[in-house]
Every structure is written in structure tokens, then in C-alpha cells.
Design a protein around this nucleic acid. Sequence first.
DNA 1: CAGTTACGCTACGGGTCGTAGCGAAAGGGT
DNA 2: ACCCTTTCGCTACGACCCGTAGCGTAACTG
Lengths: 239, 239
Amino acid sequence: MVARMHRCPLTGTRSPEGRTGPRGRTGRPRSAEADRAILGATRAALVELGWGKLTMSDVAARAGVAKTTLYRRWANKNELVLDAVAVLFDELELPDRGCLQADIEGVVLQFASLLARPETKTALMAVVAESTTDEALRLRIRSAVVERQKRLVILGRERAQARGELPPDPSGEEGAAAAGRAVGLIFDVIAGAVVHRALVSAEPVDELWAQQFSTLLLAGLSGLAGPDAPAAEPGPPGA
Amino acid sequence: MVARMHRCPLTGTRSPEGRTGPRGRTGRPRSAEADRAILGATRAALVELGWGKLTMSDVAARAGVAKTTLYRRWANKNELVLDAVAVLFDELELPDRGCLQADIEGVVLQFASLLARPETKTALMAVVAESTTDEALRLRIRSAVVERQKRLVILGRERAQARGELPPDPSGEEGAAAAGRAVGLIFDVIAGAVVHRALVSAEPVDELWAQQFSTLLLAGLSGLAGPDAPAAEPGPPGA
DNA sequence: CAGTTACGCTACGGGTCGTAGCGAAAGGGT
DNA sequence: ACCCTTTCGCTACGACCCGTAGCGTAACTG
């Protein structure tokens, strides 16, 4: 009970004395390569086995590492898998496609192709499911995925406001709060719709769907079926 | 290998010779009460333990039933849990609140309160996660949850069209296909947004959020921050 | 050099899974 | 009534996984 491990609530990796960095640490350092090998092995195991059949022993064997080494860094399967998958979300970008609708379609398609990968598919939902009975895991998802990816919404809004496609945020404290709520709302709508389409409905998120979705998001339900044309022209939206 | 069990792909319950109903069956009939007890015990176990720690032995003990009885009816944990939870979704209704926006807010709040229950929370996501590597389970989710609940969207659209709030569906084969796509799209947007807000972002789906969401859905992004007033009046939407 | 920490390895207790085998109970068909 | 079929409860079982303890060794610090 003396030199016991502590879990860092931010990074989630276990570290002696609750410290994270290599600062002031004595003794043999952790192998950074082992970290990479373990996370890579975890993703590979997710692809082949899926969340349900993934085992810690299997991951250890794939990574060429002792099982005890896994438990020195992650408290359980949930946290390991979350770390293995969360980094993939940082690949998402928001290239400037010229107009808000095209930007939305672009990020939708990017997110969809990320969700099409079997490792993210199976892991993301499982981790969220576990997070409903694991407060620490919930906080970790929030900081490792949710809050990080809101950057895409914020950036998209700023661009659209600069283009004059959206009104500027109202000033003042109340205005800032409203803007924050709007960002959260839009994030939930976009990410939620894509996830639901891809994983629950289990139907493809292709260009046609992205176009219809972005049309709905921009114009609302009343404008969805208004002009006949816009959803019927399956041309590339970037042009 | 002769009198082997078959899984019925529709109901998912195992039954001898692949038959479902009591038609032409001989021998001792299945105990309907055992079914009810098992599904109830499953929900209770989900509430107390969550998906991850739920065990078949525990469910059997709670239901006052032998473990073997469980395996005679469900092939595994996934299918049992899905059946136990799917029926809860049939409680959803769409009371006529007079206008489309109020109808949307109503169904959002209902869906949110369903997702607030610990048994649905933890089970729904877990089952979806498993379905990414289990084709049979995926089909079962589709028929037991997704397709069934689209009725709410269809009904809501019909009402709104009758009120003149939405344009009528275009006629012809192409028009019907477009209407079908629209229903799927709207379903994914509404259900996805609520699920994402409640489980991933893990923030409350309250009346304020429902109001902002329905406003966004109706008017689109451009109209979200247009008139200052509508999101600032936290009055009950039913009045 | 000593001190400290990470690592690989083995072994283990505790738990779950899903099945097999048994005798008894509950129905249907004739 | 009688046989046939199927379900039920029970026990037992092998296989597997979890997460940890203990040990000797490797790596890095001052």
C-alpha cells in the first residue's frame, strides 16, 4: 500500500506518485515503444476480434509485451481501448471548401470514413456504453474525444461567420453562453446523426446522404423538400 | 446434431425446428411466465450492474430459473439484453401537441427520459457496439428498434403535412423514395442527436435543449440565431 | 557504486461462459 | 389410460479470462 499506483484523471495513464511526465523521475523509464506497440496491438485486435472478444492477454501477446506491463499503465480494458482509439479522432480536419454547406459535407464524410473503420466502430460504442456505469471513463471520453472535436464546429462557425453565411455571435456574457450552447448543440446534431446513421441504422454515409443532411441542417425541415432540385443533383459538392 | 436448435432471425428466440408459435408443437410448452421473469430480471440486473458486469448466472438466479433455461431461449447475452430492452421503446408515443415544433419537443423529451433509465442507457450502446461484429444482432436491432420507431417520424410528418406545416410528399415512385429517405434522415438526426447529447456528451436533455434543438431542426442553422427571442423564453412548450 | 523503477515470466485464485447429462414435470395424440 | 415429445431444474464440467503477487533481471539516475 506504499508505492501504490495512482490513475491520472487527465491522461488516464497510471503513473507512480501520480506524476505524468518524466520530470524528476528516477529508475528505469517507461518504454515509449512499448506504449506504441500496445496501442497498435489494441487497434489490431479490435479490427480482428471486436470489442467483445478482445482480451488483455491477446493484446499483450501481439505487442510482444508481458501482460503485467499493460496493467502497469491502464487500469482495465476500457481505458486501454479508449486511448487506442481516441488518437484516431485527431486526424479529423476541416479543409476550407468555400461555403458552409461544403464544409459540413466534408467533415461528415471524414467522420463517416473514420467510423467505417472496424476498430473505431466497435470500440467507440462499447466505451460509451461502459461509461454509463463508470464515471472516470465518462470524464475521460469527454476530455479525450468530445471536447477536442468541438474544435471542428467552432472553426466551421467562425469561417461561416467570416463569409457572412451566419450572423456573428452576440457580444456580452449572455451572448458567449448562447454561442457555447449553440456549438454543443450543433456538435451533438452532426456527430449524433452520423453515428446513428452509420452504426444504429447501419446504412452508408455517402455523398448523397451528406448532401441531404447538410441541406437539412442549413435550411431546416421546412426547406428540406422545398425546391425540388438540390437533393437530386448528385454532383461533387466541392466544385 | 439431430434435434438441434435454430435461431429464428425475426424474433431471435430459439425454438425447436425453427418454429416460433405454439402451432403443431408437441411436448411441454415453454413457460410464458419464465419469459417474463427472465426479461424482467435482465432489466433489473442492467440497472444494478450495468452491461459490463451483468452475468447470465445472475440473471438466472434473479428470475428463479435455471441457467440452462436461459440458453434454451437466447443464444447469448447480446440477444437476451436486446429483447429485454427493445420492448421499452414501444412505450414511446407522439401525442398531438398542436404544432410540429411542439410534437418534436415532446418526442425528444420522451426519448430522453427513456434514455435516462439506466437499463436502456447501458444496454443500448453495448448492443450496438456488439452488432458491429455480429450480423445477426445487427439485423435484429434493425427490426426490433430502428424500423419500429420510425413510425414516430412518419406520424409526425403526416400530421405536419395535414396542418400545412410541411409540403405534401411528391407523388410517383421517385417521390415515395424521396419521402422514405427523408424519414430515415430525420430519424437519424433526431435519435442521433438525443443519444449523443445524453450518452456521449453526457449532458442533460431538458426542455431548454429540446426547444433549441427543435428550433434548429425546423429553421436550420441560418435561422438558429436569427430572432433573439425564441430560445430565451423558457416557458412550458405545451401551453 | 547504490537506489529506484520498469520489465518479462510464471503461477495463481476467482469468476464467467456455454454445454452435457440426468431425472422429473407438463403437455399432446391416439 | 398410455406413449411421445419437449421443457425444466439441477449438478458438474472444461475452457477461458481477469487482475495480481512474487521473483529475478534490465535500465537509468545521482
